[in-house]
């Protein structure tokens, strides 16, 4: 066991290397200091301010600049980390291209759940179940987007995602849970080049 895989607490009963299927547990690396996340946070705050206030005279804009600067100073590194910005702008463009497909998928699954809701023999049709599967996604943001996409698609809810990428999903009937992990995982993986 090398030095960086050993947990700090020697009394910790969990041997990470024995349990992890594909990689040793890495302690989180300290965030790199970079001005880019701060600049990005400032821009997001400023655009939100302009949309919400709707006044474009000098006084209100300077108020917005001061408020955005304070927010950026206190919590500028929370929205994005420096390594998240490395894939710019490819990741973001691919993510925006993913959204319409997700919306169409949500609409289709909505129609399925609506049919279940209005069906007179609903109790015979539904067959709730919990099942687990191992996802191959490694990136934290990819796992987050995949879990949120599963939850947004009606018929399936992500119950739990372990730190090793094991998903626990609750499905309303057999047909809803069949497609996982299928095309959606491939598409989320394609955003991050996995």
């Amino acid at each position: 066991m090398s030095a960086n895989t050993k947990p700090d607490n020697p009394n910790n009963p969990i041997d990470y290397q024995a349990y992890s299927p594909f990689k040793p547990f890495e302690p989180p690396t300290p965030p790199e200091r970079s001005p880019l996340p701060y600049f990005f946070t400032f821009c997001v705050c400023m655009i939100t301010w302009l949309v919400l206030s709707g006044k474009f005279d000098l006084f209100h804009i300077s108020l917005g600049v001061v408020s955005s600067a304070i927010v950026t100073y206190t919590s500028g590194d929370m929205l994005l980390r420096a390594r998240r910005l490395k894939g710019l702008p490819g990741n973001w463009l691919r993510f925006i291209a993913y959204v319409p497909w997700l919306l169409f998928e949500i609409f289709r699954a909505n129609m399925h759940v609506m049919r279940l809701v209005f069906h007179p023999r609903m109790m015979d049709l539904i067959d709730p179940r919990m099942f687990r599967f191992q996802s191959r996604l490694e990136d934290e943001t990819a796992r987050f987007i995949f879990a949120n996409s599963i939850t947004l698609t009606p018929g399936t809810i992500t119950v739990y995602v372990s730190i090793f990428g094991k998903y626990t999903v609750h499905a309303i009937d057999k047909a809803s849970g069949q497609g996982l992990p299928g095309e959606m995982e491939d598409r989320v993986g394609a955003i991050f080049g996995e």
Partner: peptide, 26 residues
Amino acid sequence: LGGAIGILRFPDFYSRLHPAGKLDTM
């Protein structure tokens, strides 16, 4: 309407989340 009726008809709270969380969002 589907969300409201689904909350009333489905048998337990796990399955009630399906219409409540998602049909309302849509």
